[in-house]
Computed example of a mutant assay.
Amino acid sequence: MPHALTDASLTALLRDMPKAELHIHIEGSLEPELIFALAQRNQVELPYADVEALRSAYAFTDLQSFLDIYYAGASVLLHEQDFYDMARAYLARAVSDHVVHAEIFFDPQTHTARGVPMASVINGLYRASRDSERDWGISCALILCFLRHLSEEEAITTLAQAMPLRDRFIGVGLDSSELGHPPEKFARVFAQCRDLGLHLVAHAGEEGPPAYIWSALDTLQVERVDHGVQAQQDEALMQRLAREQIALTVCPLSNQKLQVFPDLAQHNLPQMLEAGLMVTVNSDDPAYFGGYINENFEQLFAATGMGAAQAYQLARNSLQASFVGEARKRAWMEQLDECFVRHGAEDAIAAG
């Protein structure tokens, strides 16, 4: 019989295991301290007296109430160095959480609408990712996201603006307000991106219905679904996701903060994992939702009672679902196995 790890041993394993983060909005990693530092540097007036006043405003009831304050925080980002500093701060944290690979979402329309040049956004993020790989060994890639509450025409314009820097991002995504903005609204721009050889992902099934997940798969032809937790309402969809091993980038603390699952103990990730779906754990907007990737693992496992076998499967899923070559995946998988042996959890490898 496999032996169960103590709570302390499991927590140590969750922290130490190599993992990929596939659902992180870089603007959502902007901590209040950095917001105020950038506001001072750029002489931007904020509607909050200090760091604590801003942090105390993080009381969200749904996705839209979060987005309102999220866009206000992004107003301090004006220059290439600001984007560099933001990404560098996130990647330093990711390294400390034993993230070996991060695929970072960024929202250029949030910035270009304020007059920030597209090149400032992409070059700042790209430079930080390259410096972090050189200095810390973390692998990193950028995914450009379209804001779904805006028109498809604006998304097409954004893609055109980004094309001179095509070599600096690997894919496109779809984020912002989900309800009332189904994936098919962006069918043409995703078809363009597919023709360009870009990887395709989209938020679907966080607050929106299972139909949005079907549309993301069939109309947009995405390779991964971001969130996807509402899939459990549709048995045929669950079977398809399991059969085709389409990764879901689930964000537990975000789901809790936005009242998708008000109680983490009721989160459906364990059931989806048990059903054979390729679910992963991610942090979404960690500065706003109370936790980076390791906090998401630790709090979810504490609330649901999952153990080492599930930890191994989730970490393995994240590495497998990343948009990197097979050789790098194999190397990370070997590191993962070595980590579990080192922590006395080799039974989990066999179970996985």
Rank of each mutant, 00 (worst) to 15 (best):
T61E: 15
Y71E: 12
R93M: 12
Y48T: 05
E45S: 10
A53K: 10
A59Y: 08
N42A: 01
A94F: 00
V44M: 05
Y84C: 02
S75Q: 10
R88V: 09
L63V: 08
R88E: 08
T61H: 14
P47F: 11
R55C: 08
T61G: 15
L91P: 04
S96L: 09
L67I: 10
L67N: 03
L78Q: 15
V51P: 00
L78I: 09
L63M: 11
S56W: 10
G73A: 04
H79D: 14
A49W: 09
L91H: 02
V44S: 06
V44Y: 04
S56Q: 13
R93P: 08
P47E: 15
Y58G: 01
V44Q: 05
Q81E: 13
A89P: 11
L46G: 05
L38A: 02
H79C: 10
D62G: 08
L67E: 03
R93D: 14
Q81F: 09
F60I: 10
Y84Q: 05
A74D: 11
D50R: 05
E52I: 11
Q81A: 12
A39Q: 07
A39V: 03
L91M: 09
L78R: 15
L54P: 01
R88N: 12
T61R: 14
L63C: 02
S96F: 07
I35T: 04
F66A: 09
Q43E: 14
D82G: 02
V76Q: 01
H79S: 11
H79F: 14
Q40G: 12
A57T: 11
L38K: 04
S65V: 07
Y70E: 05
F60T: 13
H98Y: 08
R93S: 14
S65D: 12
V51L: 08
R41G: 03
S65P: 08
G73Y: 00
F60Q: 04
A94P: 01
N42W: 01
